[in-house]
Design a protein around this nucleic acid. Structure first.
Ligand SMILES: [Mg+2]
Length: 710
DNA sequence: GTTGTGGGCCTCGAG
DNA sequence: GGCCCACAAC
């Protein structure tokens, strides 16, 4: 796809700058190429001011890639916005959030902060984390926020009254989940913190309520372009609609077969019914894949044909033939990683560079054992998945300290007060919390009061208070790098030095270096708030560097990228497709995930699975159904996939199982006889089965039951 | 009262 | 392989 001159069809797309334009396009057909060339065309040929061009996408990596491509086209001159929806909203809110009575400096919650909130709430409500898993609770909160009307709750006077009433109401009605949700909102409000969803919903809310604000931002949106549009959610589609209403130049490009974010609200209809919403829409299609060999395209196409909910399309290519995608099934997961390492060595010996090779995984947890083998085989690699830099304890601690001296908020307080250990444990924390609640104080103010009153005599805690208080008053006088170093000198650096884990020290060094580079780029100190905002929205790994290293990343992150050689390990039922995918729709999404992975490959594709993930696994893992669906004739099969359904293996003693059956499957259960599965409830560990003998009443059958497939 | 540790439990994806 | 909890040791 590196071709420098566009095809006639691409050329028309690049030049159709006015009005609503939609481009459904197959993988590798030059979507981002068209988008960036359009921007270049607007700036260079039509003399449009860059700052009225807004280019949006969904992942940081895609945004960073888009920027890099544009820079390659027109150099560094453009100041047009290119970034994620969240980044864009964050920029807007910086200027507009005061309309909601929030301070200009609001706190951005990362995923780990959200988890912390949920954990605290569960503790406050005496709920066990087993019954309410963080993920599930956050999912409920996401659902609660989905129509956006909750933002009004934050506007009511007197502040927090409505939320407190809602909590009481939920509690007395025993609506536990509502109680959790309103407590979460209250916690957010108390520290003026916005989570990722809030960034979107607050922006839309302000635009709806304040016509003049919307008008002001619409002026800066003469041309709006959105890449990977199949991934928009309702609120994102709404936002795109609002900002482009004045100039009505909205360009969207996407592929419904690559919709892999439905779990955060994407729906195909925003792409498919775009022309119904905007009747003047001009639609262009891109059907030619310039990326992959015909062999890869054939396997990908065979796979995606198994989806029923999709726009029919014909993917073509004029690329010259290559070799068949390879499939291998090894004995263990370790053998699989060794095989991959061997193949990488072969590819490199044949002239391929490490950086042109990618290993694409379904979930981050697959990374570690592959990394281990790559290390053993002396293969340079960069892992973009796995242990996340910003989720690590040491980075969280330093950032919490920075947040603490700026906001003095409860969340940062709890993450810093006993880090390093200051002899301030559970019961001390309880005491402070109780005092804070009784006197309507923040935790930090409560602690300071108790220390001053002599109720708490801990010397180290006294020092903590003194440091935090002093720095809160004087942080403007320091650069962020200086602040970070000052904070580390309050004892945490010593703790880390005593820790044998070198990685922690390396992470801290990397963080300091990042801060240093940011301040160098800006030619001087940047405000602490901007730094925290930046770290909430970006990661050092977003930007591609040119190191010659094999890349390990999730398939979701790899979307929009391409690599000469692609490995997809873990082609196993339970991983790809994920064991959580039970409905037909969920399986179709897994198939699209697989399709995205396969279509990243330019020259060679290596698929693999294993029979046993652990040595003592009782029955072999089944190979992914997607291998069969790609077609045996379209693959070079080094090994036969494992196909036997492992249902006759002894039940695991563990009480928690993944479902072994899917909706509509015909089964037989002991005395009940034959029936059809009509519902799978993984949470409650049961199927609803409609038995032929009693066709009007479905029975609830536990996962652990002896169920035979028919 | 606080800190250290061993066993049990669970693991998707991104901003 | 990471996190939380219960329990033992300082
Ligand atoms: Mg693209």
């Amino acid at each position: 796809m590196a071709s420098n001159s566009p095809t006639p069809q691409q050329q028309s797309i690049i030049q159709a700058t006015e009005g609503y334009v939609r481009v459904p396009a197959v993988p590798g057909s030059g979507k981002t190429y068209c988008l960036t060339h359009r921007v270049a065309h607007l700036i260079q040929d039509l003399y449009i001011a860059p700052d009225v061009i807004i280019a949006l996408t969904f992942t940081r990596k895609a945004a960073s890639g888009m920027k890099r491509k544009l820079r390659g086209l027109i150099g560094d001159v453009a100041t047009c916005f290119m970034g994620t929806f969240h980044h864009y909203c964050s920029n807007i809110l910086k200027e507009e959030i005061h309309h909601l009575g929030y301070p200009k400096l609001f706190k951005s919650l990362r995923r780990s902060d959200q988890n912390k909130f949920v954990r605290e709430i569960l503790k406050e409500m005496n709920l066990s984390a087993r019954d309410y898993r963080e993920r599930d609770v956050l999912e409920k909160i996401r659902e609660f926020k989905v129509n956006g009307s909750y933002v009004e709750l934050f506007e009511q006077e007197p502040k927090t009254k409505i939320l407190e009433q809602s909590i009481q109401k939920a509690d007395s009605a025993h609506h536990i989940m509502d109680g959790i949700i309103y407590r979460y909102l209250l916690k957010e409000f108390q520290v003026h913190a916005l989570d990722y969803d809030d960034l979107l919903y607050f922006t839309v809310h302000i635009f709806k309520k304040y016509a003049d604000v919307l008008d002001k931002w619409q002026d800066k949106c003469e041309y709006v372009l959105i890449d990977e549009y199949q991934d928009v959610s309702k609120v994102q589609a709404e936002l795109a609609d609002m900002i482009s209403q004045k100039y009505k130049n909205l360009f969207i490009i996407g592929d419904d077969d690559q919709l892999i974010y439905s779990w955060r609200g994407s729906k195909p209809e925003y792409l498919i019914e775009f022309d119904k919403k905007y009747p003047n829409t001009q639609t262009y299609t891109l059907n030619c894949n310039f990326r992959s060999t015909p062999e890869i395209i054939k396997a990908a196409d065979a796979l995606i044909q198994h989806n029923t909910e999709r726009l029919p399309k014909q993917m073509k290519t004029s690329n010259s033939t290559g070799s068949l995608p390879v499939y291998n099934c090894t004995k263990t997961a370790v053998d699989e990683a060794i095989w991959i390492a061997d193949k990488i060595h072969e590819s490199v010996e044949a002239g391929c560079q490490y950086k042109e090779i990618a290993i694409l995984i379904r979930n981050s947890s697959q990374a570690s054992h592959i990394e281990q083998q790559l290390r053993l085989h002396a293969i340079p690699y960069k892992a973009y998945a796995g242990a996340k830099f910003f989720e690590s304890e040491e980075i969280r601690t330093v950032l919490s300290y920075l947040s603490m001296i700026l906001f003095l908020d409860d969340l940062s307080f709890e993450q810093t007060v006993n880090m390093p250990k200051r002899g301030f444990g559970k019961s001390s924390m309880e005491k402070v919390k109780q005092y804070a609640a009784d006197n309507q104080l923040t935790l930090f103010t409560a602690l300071v009061t108790l220390v001053q009153a002599g109720e708490i005599k801990n010397k180290q805690i006294f020092e903590y208070c003194r440091h935090i208080y002093a720095m809160n008053k004087s942080h403007q006088g320091y650069s962020c790098l200086e602040l970070a170093n000052i904070i580390l000198d309050w004892g945490y650096r010593e703790t880390l030095d005593g820790d044998p884990d070198q990685e922690k020290k390396d992470n801290i060094t990397a963080l300091l270096q990042m801060i240093n580079e940011l301040e160098k780029e800006e030619d001087g100190p940047i405000p602490l708030h901007d730094l925290l905002q930046f770290f909430a929205l970006f990661s050092p790994e977003d930007d591609e560097n040119d190191d010659d290293k094999v890349k390990i990343m999730t398939i979701h992150t790899a979307k929009g990228l391409e690599f000469d050689h692609v490995f997809i390990p873990g082609m196993v039922e339970g991983i790809l497709p994920s064991g959580r995918a039970v409905t037909k729709q969920a399986i179709e999404e897994e198939r699209r995930v697989c399709y995205v992975a396969v279509t990243r490959a330019v020259k060679q594709l290596f698929l693999s699975s294993y029979q046993y993930q652990y040595e003592k696994q009782s029955s072999p893992s089944m190979s992914s159904r997607f291998i069969n669906e790609m077609g045996e004739n379209n693959l070079m099969m080094l090994q036969k996939p494992v196909e036997s359904l492992a249902v006759n293996s002894p039940q695991k003693p563990s009480s928690y199982c993944t479902p072994q059956f899917v909706i509509a499957q015909r089964v037989s259960v002991g005395l009940w006889g034959e029936g059809t599965i009509i519902e799978v409830d993984e949470q409650k560990q049961k199927y609803k089965i409609l038995f032929d003998a009693m066709p009007n009443l479905a029975k609830n059958i536990a996962f652990a039951a002896d169920i035979k497939i028919l």
